[in-house]
Write a protein that binds this DNA or RNA. Sequence first.
DNA 1: CGCGGGATACTTGTATGCAAGTATCCCGCG
DNA 2: CGCGGGATACTTGCATACAAGTATCCCGCG
Lengths: 245, 245
Amino acid sequence: MQVSRGMGEGALDDGRRAAVLSLVERTRRGGRASDQVFEQLLEAIRGLRLLPGQPLSETELARDLGVSRTPVREAIARLTDAGLVDVVPQVGTTVAKIRLAEVEEARFVRESLEIAAIKVAMPLAAADVAGLRRLIEDQRHALDAGDLDGLFELDEALHGRIFALSGHPGVWATVRRTKVHLDRMRRLVLPDRALISEVIAEHASIVDALESGDAIGGEDLVRAHARRVSALTPELTRRFPDHFA
Amino acid sequence: MQVSRGMGEGALDDGRRAAVLSLVERTRRGGRASDQVFEQLLEAIRGLRLLPGQPLSETELARDLGVSRTPVREAIARLTDAGLVDVVPQVGTTVAKIRLAEVEEARFVRESLEIAAIKVAMPLAAADVAGLRRLIEDQRHALDAGDLDGLFELDEALHGRIFALSGHPGVWATVRRTKVHLDRMRRLVLPDRALISEVIAEHASIVDALESGDAIGGEDLVRAHARRVSALTPELTRRFPDHFA
DNA sequence: CGCGGGATACTTGTATGCAAGTATCCCGCG
DNA sequence: CGCGGGATACTTGCATACAAGTATCCCGCG
């Protein structure tokens, strides 16, 4: 029943799909099953453990996760709103392919909001420059250790803290929502150590600009940083054609 | 079973609540019941036909709308994600009160993105200045006719078209999502004719700036326009204390 | 051998029934 | 009259059964 895909890495056959999702200890950890299914699927899609275009059967998901279809359906409804899942009634549900239009849109949103945030944060950033530098150090360590997941989260943490410094911590949630499509592309380039090293260097430059109060330089740096992934679009669409719509 | 609320206007007793929502001709118009319930509730909340803090019973909604609880639940799950509904398990569901933190966040997002958009749209806007001016004329007519709903939609249309001109039409969807909280405050001030007249005048000024290519002026105008509602916050919280968290 | 049609096995959408939990109301008691 | 406790009626969460529709596969026919 699996659609044929060109790529091998990460593609799981039916029998092993349960491995990518697990709702063990559901009762112990409390909370609604619906929410946990949502979180599981969201992270699996963001982390490319569920690949773009991969079919998702409600029945199968429910069976693998040990719940009924009801909470699965509610989670899928929310993921559909987020643009991460495509549902065709009476036909099937698939993980949404990466749509370049949405990626570009997310780039615009992220770039605009982060520039606006850094302008506001500029005079206040000195207070936490130490914390920001520590995050960058952690990123270097994660890169050396090959901890891709950790790198990803540390990247998130850095940008999130910049929004917090700007006095608009809630805006980060909005950025996160729109950024999901960008994230999947970032995942694709994550194994490129040289590139990631450059990205971390850019982080350091941004923090330098924050510390020295260089507003113009900071804006340019953030802009370049946000557009880095866009520059890689041609290569990525060539290497992973099946991932894109 | 209704929670006691201080306000009288717009508050409906159980028997008449069916009036604010209707799913008539559901089968004829096609589409999923879940989606239609979502749309109905979204518009009812945005339009303050369902008031902040008002309890929503899944069973009651299902009965009034002529569907089962299942599609109602899926719609509510999506609305919860949007921050428009608060669900407390085993206790009840309510229309979310207006949270000033989210309003301020939405203001920041809207202002930042609209400034970024107008900068990009500046050189391209001349092409559709006529269309923009027509929208403003329609707004004046709607104000004269007292058509509040129409005014609201025309306002949306104007800002949406600016995003379209910027080459990032999809960003408008993001703005719309975060803007919902702002919208409810806008609804509260909508009956103020003098104020609305000023708002329309600001629209005209923005279009003027677009036509003349006045980037700096355009940015300042958009900023002032976005912050107009914020200035009214104290008065609104005083006049409608029950609407705010 | 190629093609068309029908049974079949899947998909999602909806309705309903049951379970668990909480707030309320009322009655009895002090 | 005030207060406490228990039955009750509500709430949402989840599981299951049924309905409607579509793609596929296979068999029969030309």
